[in-house]
Design a protein around this nucleic acid. Structure first.
Lengths: 202, 202
DNA sequence: GTCTATATTTGGATAGAC
DNA sequence: GTCTATCCAAATATAGAC
């Protein structure tokens, strides 16, 4: 077995696993997100997606095993995006300030794309459940959240759960009852203040 | 025009508006809720509903103009149920105690039937929007909530919005991440305590 | 008011040529 | 890898007999 053969196994020039293949996959996922943002998480078909990327529907099956597999890729994509944003948040300053930054990022992320929020956090797509590898990314988000809360002095299970309820509630209400507005979003800092006071953080 | 004719116009013996017709409508709505609770809000068809009530699908069109009309009746039914529960809550005792009772009822109601919660508060059914008369019931729920909060000394818009975010968040998390459990539900009292403290209520 | 039969549409998925 | 053609299944909704 030559070195070339080994490298080809790791990253083949063509076929599944090739850079070209991965690029097209990303392009398809991106098109699906655009449609979901525009028409809702369930408001598009494989034919619609294919049209956006300049293909016919059956060609998508070269890249995804089916619609649920595409949802799974979208799920993983959403997790990666939130994770990237979460890791960039500064941990400097008083705990309550860090928490405020985290809450703003989370609520902002959810509100920015209701369909994405629905897929990632509401689990409301009929037959869909994330694959193990995608779900691992969601757990990573949770781990990061736990880490931040722990550093702020709110490390118990109840602390974490009340936190997620609070930020999720703001996002849910904003999306459901004032889409595109700021009615709940603007309460984010107040909510964190309330949370920190009850937890005796500063 | 005889008295009999007038009464027949108000409540005809047969046809739309008759007691029999209304009974059948209720029976159909009830069957739809059963299916929604079991298979999810979108996990059933008109054929399924018809089967439960011992009919064929086309017969349902005698009672509802279509599936969205049935969803609308379910929406109104859910609002009426929550409203009835809300009006039965005692307003005796300290404000914080009243709020605790209200929160328990609300979260309990949502958690008891995730599909109902999804229809009423998440607005995630593709083509559905409640009719004006159904939506009036939802506004009545909001009015009642505002009334209770006002009596407790939390009468501002921000007070109301933070409240709805809090209880909605608990319900959302419970349903999405621990269905059938108590992980978030049991934090209801804590959450109200936190809310009341921040609002300087007692 | 309920039925059978059917229209209509849709959308996911597969087969096989190129 | 992409296409055309097609299958298959489902689900809403309508027509018209009884």
């Amino acid at each position: 077995m030559t070195l070339g053969t080994v490298m080809a196994m790791a990253a083949p020039v063509r076929g599944p696993g090739s850079p070209r293949h991965a690029d097209t996959r990303r392009e398809i996922v991106s098109a699906a997100w655009d449609l979901a943002a525009e028409r809702g998480l369930l408001g598009w078909t494989l034919k619609d997606v294919a049209e956006v990327v300049g293909m016919r529907a059956p060609s998508l099956y070269v890249y995804f095993a089916g619609k649920n597999d595409l949802y799974d890729a979208m799920y993983a994509d959403g997790c990666t995006a939130l994770l990237a944003r979460g890791e960039r948040i500064s941990r400097d300053g008083a705990p309550v300030d860090v928490l405020r930054r985290v809450a703003r990022v989370y609520v902002g992320f959810c509100v920015a794309n209701p369909a994405r929020y629905q897929l990632m956090f509401l689990r409301t797509v009929p037959g869909f459940t994330p694959s193990q590898s995608s779900y691992a990314l969601a757990l990573e988000i949770l781990r990061l959240t736990r880490e931040v809360l722990d550093a702020a002095g709110a490390g118990s299970q109840a602390d974490l759960d009340l936190w997620t309820a609070l930020v999720t509630g703001l996002a849910t209400q904003q999306i459901s009852n004032d889409p595109g507005g700021r009615r709940w979003r603007r309460l984010t800092d107040d909510a964190v203040t309330m949370y920190a006071a009850a937890r005796c953080l500063r």
